[in-house]
Design a protein around this nucleic acid. Structure first.
Lengths: 273, 273
DNA sequence: TTGCTCCTCACGTCACGTGAGGTGGC
DNA sequence: TTGCTCCTCACGTCACGTGAGGTGGC
């Protein structure tokens, strides 16, 4: 056999060069998608450097989410025109993928920020926060008739999000008109909101910038009303006027704590100082 | 059993809401990572809307490349501080991922462009092309002593790329000092180059902008010298002065054609008009 | 009753990974 | 001889997917 170790690479060498495991090369040989140029009598595989090109093609196509079978099929009928249409398809897929990952990245950063703040917060304090404008997507909440209406509202909100193609949302919460609390009416939410990012066209409501009277609730949803009233009392005592909606946000959720009772809920409402 | 179809979702409904298959939910139930809140006597599963949160957590972590087992482990010991360190890790992984995909996107666009042009080229023509500056990463080619030195050079180039962390390169090729061709010296390449994008700090050579006398070779590497001489003759005949390096690029490679003999090779050299 | 959904096995698949046990070249 | 690399099975794994065959509610 004409095996020159200067120019022919063993399975291990080629694997190293291509940043894959030897098993991968065995596997490719076995399914017939990529075999060494030379097989010695003793069964040793020898790859040529120029096989790198072919291997790179396979890697590239694989990273474009093609299965080995699809790749094999493409390679069997490859041509410049086939390649162009393949690449144009893949380009779009890739861009969608990148967008998803970008959104996920914003989500992660947002979540990290919120969680960090949540761990350093004095949950018993009432503060005034300067808040920037935010774009929200709202749906109406069902009139409150027990847990059932909460479920209904959430379900409806989810379906709306799906319908409007809002995926990987940043965060969601509830809204409640402050007049209801002022007038001591029945405690029932008006809207569910989902933050949609500044650039999004999906927003149907703008939460205006300004000063928000903010408090935290730590004892689970069932007693959340107490904190609404705490805010109202505080505003009355300090002579401030509450305006618009209460915004209810979850700072610590299932990602970091287990069960609704441990959630950290933030309640904020615009005040005219 | 207290099953209320208004507030409890069946496996199918929940699957639809979460954009996954029913099998996924069965699977999650089986491995104990995510089970329905309620199992009826007849074995029917019922999920609560608020289980969406938990499921979303799993989806999110999965998209951060965690295995179901890792996710289960994290969920079992979750806490705000654990979450923060997890997210910070994942953020970096995500950014590396996005970068890779971005590079791949440029590569795809570049490749599409080149392939499109390659299919519309008159391969027998010699033309003068206006070319922008390009940043290259060079390694020296081994002195030509047959195929072996070609392999050695390629191997060395690849190892250099790996060493300098240049992955997903745009395209590579060979360089040959035009004086050698002019003086009819032995045909042997001087460098291998890899394009590294304008912003990269990895470049160690700048291919200058200017007019490049360009021809194409279609009969495989072994006879490539003919086209070099064709260019030289053309320059002499038209009274142009050739300068610097010949750049040898492959326009159609294994991605679209099978085998070196079918490659479309582009050869270009700077001319002072 | 029909059509749709629910269930549980058990086996398949995809792209390798993981030993186990043995060979071969400097 | 030692250490490293090569090989071939065969079985495992991960995250489901795919029938097959049967049940249950409006």
């Amino acid at each position: 056999m004409n095996v020159n170790l200067q120019t022919h690479l063993t399975t291990g060498q080629f694997a190293k060069l291509m940043n894959v495991s030897k098993d991968t090369l065995f596997h490719y040989d076995q399914i017939g998608i990529f075999s060494p140029e030379i097989k010695d009598e003793n069964g040793y595989r020898y790859y040529l450097i120029n096989q790198m090109d072919v291997f790179n093609v396979i890697s590239t196509l694989k990273e474009l989410d093609m299965s080995l079978n699809e790749i094999k099929n493409y390679l069997d009928r490859r041509s410049p025109t086939e390649l162009i249409s393949l690449l144009e398809n893949k380009k779009e897929a890739l861009e969608r993928r990148i967008q998803t990952l970008e959104r996920r990245r914003t989500m992660i950063m947002e979540k990290t920020f919120l969680t960090k703040r949540a761990t350093s917060i004095d949950v018993s304090a009432i503060t005034i926060e300067q808040v920037n404008e935010e774009r929200l997507f709202l749906t109406n909440a069902a009139p409150f008739l027990g847990d059932k209406s909460i479920y209904e509202s959430m379900l409806k909100h989810q379906h709306s999000l799906k319908k409007h193609n809002i995926d990987a949302p940043i965060s969601s919460g509830w809204m409640l008109n402050s007049n209801k609390i002022k007038k001591n009416q029945v405690f029932s939410y008006d809207h569910l909101f989902t933050r949609v990012g500044k650039a999004s066209s999906k927003s149907n409501f703008v939460k205006k910038e300004g000063n928000y009277l903010t408090a935290y609730h730590t004892e689970g949803y069932s007693s959340v009303r107490k904190t609404y009233e705490k805010i109202l009392n505080y505003a009355n005592k300090t002579g401030r006027t509450i305006e618009g909606y209460f915004y209810e946000d979850v700072l610590l959720d299932e990602l970091s704590v287990e069960g609704y009772e441990k959630y950290l809920i933030k309640i904020a409402v615009n005040v005219v100082v």
